[in-house]
Write a protein that binds this DNA or RNA. Structure first.
Lengths: 236, 236
DNA sequence: AACGGGAGTTGATCCGGATCAACTCCCGAG
DNA sequence: CTCGGGAGTTGATCCGGATCAACTCCCGTT
């Protein structure tokens, strides 16, 4: 089955390691790590905690959340297998945000001190980290552009297509999957209210682009969806 | 004169090198670079061009712009002395966006091949790049949070305070400066229309927090301004 | 089986900022 | 000096999404 590739230059919203140059294999032979299971709803780490490790998501789905001192808060990403968490907190000493498991998940915990010494020994690992981070900056910028430019429906469509694409890259169906997050979490990520997310999804369903039952999504017309997602900037 | 420090934990919107660990001095002795002058309005580089160098801003003001294939476009940053440009395009091979001088500026051009070989020789330079990039990711996230959470006036206030803070760090006044960018460029950065920027500034003036004459800004009550900037999320 | 509660849906209304439309002001070119 | 045009300001109106308010539905408990 061929990937339902979008035609336009939509970049992926998160940055899987493989694309960025840190192969899982390079990690495995370069540094020691410990497997760790987190059950749904549990925190992998919290904002402000001392940065002791970075985490490779091996299974499940993790959301990262950034909160400001005065209570404002936003989901900054949904992370699937193959993504690296907390790397951006290197240099800060503490975690910048929370990471919560949306379902039972497994991560590989890579102790900071091991990572640092391995990176010092192995220049290609250090270089891979640089690549990984620069790709993350690019993804973040692209996302900022999308959120700022697209209307509510377009943002939702973009997210659904992106999730499908990422799941497909992991061997799952790109068009039929189950959301691991609530409407509120989607809204927080897309900078929309949960009602608006619901309405956008409903509208996409009415137009025959999707089939939806609670969290279960079936993309019926990926082509049309991706055209919608990148169509004229209705701004907001 | 003491810095008009904001009380809350506002992070700087851009990431000066010094804070992130690449000292200017480390750069100077590690790699060769060429001085290059760009006059106002000229491009330092354009999206899609092959990434031949990264640039250290030594004087002036440079804006970076990200555009999507379908015409949407956003200013992603205003860069002053001490900032490094195009680092996030490492690994992409080509520049992700345009960089335009907002006034006559000087940059130090660091050829990619030199940077790469220097980084391979000097682990601390490679590590510094990692730090720089991770700080950039954090700044980007913080900004995403702000733009998504704050109302128009709060965003404008945040930007003005931030510019003041950064200028102050360079030895200039934090409260009296001249904007190098148009209202439209500010709007593009803040995800607002230019009229909205104008109105926000006017309103801040009416409330006695600012004194404004075209591009000349005088912050009269930094305290109140910073309280406003971080006050309750009126969302948008 | 009844209950309770979180998640999702849908409708009505409101509002912040976008959009459209004149203006003014300043600056640079001839 | 005059002229032209880009930048900024201000007002009027519109609209997308926020907000408020019922609902329904599903699932897990007791």
């Amino acid at each position: 089955m061929l990937a339902t590739r979008t035609l336009n230059s939509v970049r992926t919203l998160a940055q899987p390691l493989i694309a960025a140059g840190i192969s899982q294999e390079l990690l495995q032979r370069s540094v020691a790590f410990a497997r760790r299971r987190i059950s749904a709803g549990q925190a992998l780490y919290r904002a402000g905690q001392v940065l002791r490790a970075v985490y490779f998501v091996n299974a499940g789905c993790i959301k990262s959340v950034l909160a400001s001192s005065d209570g404002r808060e936003r989901v900054t990403g949904f992370h699937l297998r193959g993504e690296l968490l907390a790397l951006e907190s290197i240099g800060a000493g503490t975690h910048e945000g929370d990471a919560l498991a949306l379902e039972d998940s497994e991560v590989w915990e890579i102790a900071m001190c091991d990572l640092m010494s391995a990176a010092a020994r192995q220049p290609e690992l250090q270089a891979a980290m640089t690549l990984q981070l620069s790709a993350q900056v690019r993804a973040e910028r692209q996302w900022l552009l999308s959120v700022g430019t697209l209307g509510a429906e377009q943002r939702v469509a973009t997210l659904l297509l992106d999730l499908g694409r990422r799941l497909h890259a992991l061997g799952f169906s790109a068009t039929h999957f189950v959301l691991r997050m609530t409407r509120a979490e989607i809204g927080s990520f897309l900078n929309l209210q949960l009602e608006t997310v619901t309405r956008a999804i409903s509208h996409l369903r009415e137009r025959g682009l999707l089939d939806v039952t609670r969290r279960e999504i079936r993309i019926l017309d990926a082509q049309a969806l991706s055209e919608l997602a990148s169509s004229g900037a209705t701004a907001h």
